[in-house]
Amino acid sequence: MAGYIIKRIAAMVPTLLLTSFLIFIIIELPPGDYFESYLAELRASGELIDSAKIEFLRTEYGFDKPFLHRYWLWLTGMLHGDFGYSFEHERPVSELIGSRLFFTILLSFLTIIFTWIVAFPIAIYSATHKYSWGDYGLTFLGLLGIATPNFLLALVMMYAANVVFGVSIGGLMDPQFIGQPMSVEKFLSIGAHLVIPVIVIGTAGTAAMIRRIRANLLDELNKQYVVTARAKGVPPFRGLVKYPLRMSLNFFIADIGGILPAVISGAEVIAIVLSLETTGPLLIRALKTQDMYLAGSFLMLLAVLTVIGVLISDLLLAVLDPRIRLEGKALK
């Protein structure tokens, strides 16, 4: 097992290296750099230009060096915890993203929990009541969840929550709590504000998960050992829970790897629409102003988060399912 974990972690390294290179290419693609647009802006507004400072920043961050060299600087910097410097906010990137990243992780985590709680009973119901009206209705509802653009769902639900429950619109907490130390009220306020994003981000993933678990559970229920158990007089509920359900549970865990990128994607868009203080709005702003280190480090951190999430799901799967082969090659 330990060998498997080490191997799995070692396999992450090339993946992350490739990811970082890809991201660096993307943030380098736009012509010009932040300083050019910044200088143009200053000139247009007729402000004084502190060219010494800009030259200093340019050299400090290696804008005069060739592409690969800059990539190397960025990469090694990140390994030391130096994620670069946000030119727009004039602060190191790591200072900017700390708390925001925490909320992104919290949001993604809660969303996955929500997905599980909702998908699990519905999938079991759908599989055990195959082709019933309830099954059709739930399947259709799930498809509707996939088809509705989540940003619009977020807007409408935000409005509904405001009218029905009096939750203030947008943000992660009621305005009076911003900057306050953590208290019970603040905690509750954050909780109330997280409900909508979690539901909205979760809908699409939940629907997809229900479909997969339903299919898996149906496969399992058609196997002969289930028939044998029924024939021997095992009560239906026990006959369902004892083995078929446990077998399909594996897909629950394995699915994290599949839905995590989608959850993080969704979290970014929803955060922009609902102006949550997560990474989303900061990222889009950084992308628009070519604040490249901020944007690049963000993308990189999101990728790392996803890769770690997938790793955790793989490890859990290996623990839960003894049939998963840790060694050897995949079957052809």
Partner: peptide
Amino acid sequence: QRIIEVLQSIPTIPLWLALAAI
């Protein structure tokens, strides 16, 4: 295979945003 893995492990929307922003 590795390239596919990498592309699938990056959340799409932020990457789309990045590509669209440039």
